[in-house]
């Protein structure tokens, strides 16, 4: 009887032991899985989680893509702006250069003619005294040259600009740019040689008239004539 009970009890104990073993085994396996699994890892996720994640990432991607597009647009705008700035700067520089050339603030060189006038005042030619060269004579020459498209003119290295004056000091000297000059007068002009020559030479031209008056006048042409810049300050004190 005792053995029988023991046998039953043994079977029972073994059975319960096995079930306890199974329970604990499964529980601890599960504990371990839950503890060691990184929920954010993609391999361990369930389909629905993956789907949600994918959607959120897609949205994020969309947002970031939009942002990227915006930034790209902004960058291209800035680039355009900087390019146009550069262009503006180049244009301005070019304009400045041109203005400086026109104003006479830079040394220039180019094709043109050189007129050399020598005052023969007091000489006796054909029973008459030769009169001096007047500022009007020079003005005529300069005017004729400008009329023929001269781009730069100087008299005895005094550049003729908008503020230049040509007048006389007393009976001997002429005055250009408030500087005293005297014979011989070297007038340099840059421009189309043919036009310039045709404007001052020829019958009845200003050179012809000067020659008739008894002065010496020679006209030479040059491929590279250098004209110095206006070497005084251009004053704008009274221009508001």
């Amino acid at each position: 009887m005792k053995i029988k009970i023991n046998k039953e009890k043994t079977v029972m104990a073994i059975a319960i032991g096995i079930s306890c073993f199974a329970l604990m085994l499964v529980m601890f396996m599960q504990f371990k899985v839950v503890r060691q699994t990184n929920i954010t890892e993609i391999e361990t996720m369930r389909e629905s989680e993956l789907r949600a994640e994918l959607t959120s990432w897609q949205e994020k991607y969309k947002e970031i893509n939009e942002r990227y597009q915006e930034i790209t647009n902004t960058i291209s705008q800035y680039q355009n702006e900087s390019e146009s700035d550069q262009q503006t700067a180049q244009l301005l520089e070019k304009e400045l250069e041109q203005l400086n050339l026109a104003l006479g603030k830079t040394d220039v060189e180019g094709q043109g003619i050189i007129i050399a006038l020598t005052d023969n005042e007091g000489k006796q030619i054909d029973d008459r005294l030769v009169d001096r060269i007047y500022p009007e004579d020079l003005l005529l020459v300069v005017n004729a040259l400008f009329g023929a498209g001269a781009e730069a003119i100087s008299i005895n290295d005094q550049r003729i600009i908008a503020m230049s004056d040509i007048s006389s000091i007393g009976d001997v000297f002429l005055r250009v740019n408030s500087e005293r000059i005297s014979s011989p007068y070297i007038i340099k002009a840059i421009g189309d040689i043919t036009y310039l020559q045709s404007a001052i030479l020829g019958k009845g031209g200003c050179i012809d008239q000067l020659k008739e008056a008894g002065h010496d006048a020679t006209v030479t042409e040059g491929r590279r004539i250098e004209i110095e810049k206006y070497n005084k300050t251009i004053r704008t004190d009274h221009i508001d």
Partner: peptide, 25 residues
Amino acid sequence: MIIIAILIGCIVGAIIGINAPIIPY
């Protein structure tokens, strides 16, 4: 005896469970 069986079962199960390979999540 039954208590001993339960204890042994629990302990062995826990040990093996801890050392078992990880199953997929």
